[in-house]
């Protein structure tokens, strides 16, 4: 157990790692926006009275919530092109897998938020002549989304970590680059420790922020 830590090779390879970090941030931004944004649409559809909206939304949620993201990414990379004739690349496969999974989970968060709003709010909007959509947009969603903000931030944090799964199909991100460094320098311990550290350094302050957010929201209620 006499490992001598040597981070010098990591620092020497910092440009390689930096490319990976940029890849991580890039795919994170895309998937978090698509996932949380699309989730709002699916969540609203899931809540809708019309079965033509709620049933497809429900099917979507169940499919993507009950299959592993890793499998989804691999499936979009290897199976999807053969089945549909549509080419995918590592980036696209990973974006699809992570975004769709995030949409499914966040849709349930939004739906729970909408459901938690008192029926009287719908009635008040309706009584002054607002349409369903106006009431939803102006009265229900602002309060519902605010209420589920902590849950959504947690989802965002999950998405950030899930981005490492993209390495399985060869998308260039932090973990993938660390593996490259490890293979070339025979220093897997330092390489993968560095990856863990990088994620921790980014996420720890963010998580602390969510605690503050939660406390502020609770006070606001």
């Amino acid at each position: 157990m006499g490992h001598t830590w040597d981070f010098a090779t990591i620092l020497q390879n910092w440009p390689v790692l930096w490319v990976g970090i940029k890849g991580t941030v890039f795919i994170f931004v895309i998937t978090v926006v698509l996932g949380l944004g699309g989730g709002l649409v699916v969540g609203v559809a899931r809540y809708a009275k019309s079965p033509f909206l709620s049933w497809p939304a429900r099917a979507f949620v169940e499919v993507f919530r009950n299959t592993p993201v890793l499998v989804q990414i691999i499936w979009f990379f290897y199976a999807f092109p053969i089945l549909t004739g549509i080419e995918t690349d590592p980036f696209l496969a990973a974006v699809l897998g992570i975004s769709l999974n995030t949409m499914a989970f966040s849709a349930e968060i939004y739906r729970a938020g909408i459901q938690s709003i008192d029926r009287g709010q719908w009635e008040a909007g309706k009584a002054i002549g607002m349409t369903y959509n106006q009431t939803l947009r102006r009265i229900i969603l602002p309060v519902a989304v605010k209420r589920v903000l902590p849950a959504l931030t947690n989802r965002g944090i999950e998405v950030f970590k899930m981005s490492t799964l993209a390495s399985v199909v060869g998308y260039v991100e932090t973990l993938n680059q660390a593996k490259l460094i490890a293979d070339l320098n025979y220093n897997p311990i330092e390489s993968y420790t560095a990856v863990a550290l990088i994620f921790f350094v980014v996420l720890f302050p963010v998580v602390q922020g969510t605690y503050v957010l939660e406390r502020m929201l609770r006070k606001g209620d």
Binding site: D118, G120, Q121, A124
Partner: peptide
């Protein structure tokens, strides 16, 4: 309404 239902 009985319970006001103001927009919070």
């Amino acid at each position: 309404f009985q319970h006001f239902n103001l927009f919070p």
